[in-house]
Simulated scan of single mutants.
Amino acid sequence: MPAAASISRRQLLKGRTATPPFAPRPPGVTEVSVGHCTGCAACVEACPQDILSLSAGRVRLLPELGECLFCGACAEACPEPVFDATRVMAHRVIIDDNCLARADITCMACRDACPESAIIMRPRIGGPFLPKLDDALCIGCGACIALCPGQAITYSPLGGPP
């Protein structure tokens, strides 16, 4: 049985199926176009940031390793129609409860790392400032994900849960 379709014994007996974790894709790769990926790894080798890999024979973005610069090297190297011209990310960024500021530890790493100034720090009484993400400004590059010391920044598909 393929790994994506496998479930644990407990899930089987309880009637629950495992939901595969969301795998973020590089800019311009849609859920449909990733089906054209042959797993040749040309895009992985072309990425100057070394933030691409193959997962189950498909290209995958690893924003936890660094920021995507939207340089287009991956799209230029790909021999298949996997990348479209829009070069927009198909995921959004989420700051969860593991944020150090929510644990009363002063941290502004995400704000400082964001090239689009999509994260602002909201003041609060009795504690450090709290990060607030402006979804309209966030481009999903992963700069904040890679530098978050609390590993509190994750991603979900566009249209997914907030």
Rank of each mutant, 00 (worst) to 15 (best):
A4C: 03
A5N: 13
S6M: 14
I7K: 09
I7Y: 05
S8Q: 05
R9K: 13
L12W: 11
L12G: 09
T17F: 09
P24V: 07
P24L: 03
R25C: 02
P26N: 05
P27T: 03
V29L: 08
V32L: 10
V32W: 07
S33P: 01
V34F: 00
G35C: 01
G35H: 00
C37N: 07
G39H: 05
G39N: 06
A41R: 15
V44Q: 04
V44C: 02
A46R: 08
S53K: 11
S55E: 09
S55P: 02
A56K: 09
A56L: 14
G57V: 02
R58S: 12
L61C: 02
L61R: 05
L61F: 15
L62N: 15
L62T: 15
P63D: 10
L65F: 14
L65D: 11
C68A: 00
C68R: 01
F70D: 05
C71R: 11
A75D: 06
P81L: 11
V82N: 14
F83R: 04
D84F: 02
N98D: 12
L100D: 02
L100E: 04
R102L: 15
A103D: 12
M108I: 13
M108Q: 13
M108A: 13
A109G: 01
A109E: 07
C110V: 07
A113W: 04
C114S: 06
E116G: 01
A118L: 02
A118W: 04
I120G: 14
I120Q: 15
M121A: 04
R122Y: 10
R124Y: 00
G127A: 08
P128I: 06
P128D: 04
F129D: 13
L130I: 15
P131N: 08
P131V: 10
P131C: 06
K132N: 14
L133D: 08
D134H: 07
D134N: 12
L137F: 01
L137T: 08
C144D: 04
I145N: 00
L147F: 01
C148Y: 01
G159K: 09
G160R: 13
